[in-house]
């Protein structure tokens, strides 16, 4: 039995970054201290939702937030070695966007690829490159707060 009201929440979505209208450049998404070793966080304040994590090698990596398999948020997952493991089916994604492990599969499907984002860290700040023309990151590109 329930006597709940008729709530109609908006559901999460993976926004199309091409519709953001933002300039290409490095966007500040967090402070270095926000992402300690082997931790992942969700970033909404970017042209699309992303997960940013620090591997056990201390390097930061970033992918689209939602798993390309069944759609769960990778930010709710665990960092394993230098990859991020989805909480739903434990598919593990490397920083280059390749799925590098599925514990219950014999073979990783060729299409198991997600979008990766370039991350840089300097002066205690974490930046992610957004490029409106989908070109590689420019190390000397403009920084945005």
């Amino acid at each position: 039995m329930t006597d709940q009201e008729l709530i109609a929440p908006e559901l999460p979505e993976q926004k199309d970054p091409a519709t953001s209208g933002l300039e290409s450049g490095w966007y500040k998404v967090a402070k270095s201290e926000d992402i300690p070793l082997k931790k992942a966080i969700q970033i909404d304040d970017f042209p699309t939702q992303i997960v940013v994590w620090r591997g056990e090698d201390a390097v930061l990596r970033s992918l689209d937030l939602y798993c390309k398999h069944m759609g769960a948020s990778l930010a709710c997952g665990e960092v394993e070695e230098n990859s991020i493991q989805c909480p739903f089916h434990a598919w593990r994604w490397a920083g280059d966007g390749q799925c590098d492990k599925i514990p219950y599969a014999k073979k990783i499907p060729a299409k198991a690829i997600t979008r990766s984002w370039e991350v840089s860290e300097n002066d205690g700040m974490i930046y992610v490159w957004f490029d409106r023309d989908q070109k590689p990151a420019d190390p000397n590109g403009q920084k945005f707060n």
């Binding site: 069944m70 769960a72 599969a105 499907p109």
Partner: peptide
Amino acid sequence: IWENKIYIPDPVVCDG
């Protein structure tokens, strides 16, 4: 999981 996911209409599935 359900309250923090998107719906993938045509998911890539694996052999398992």
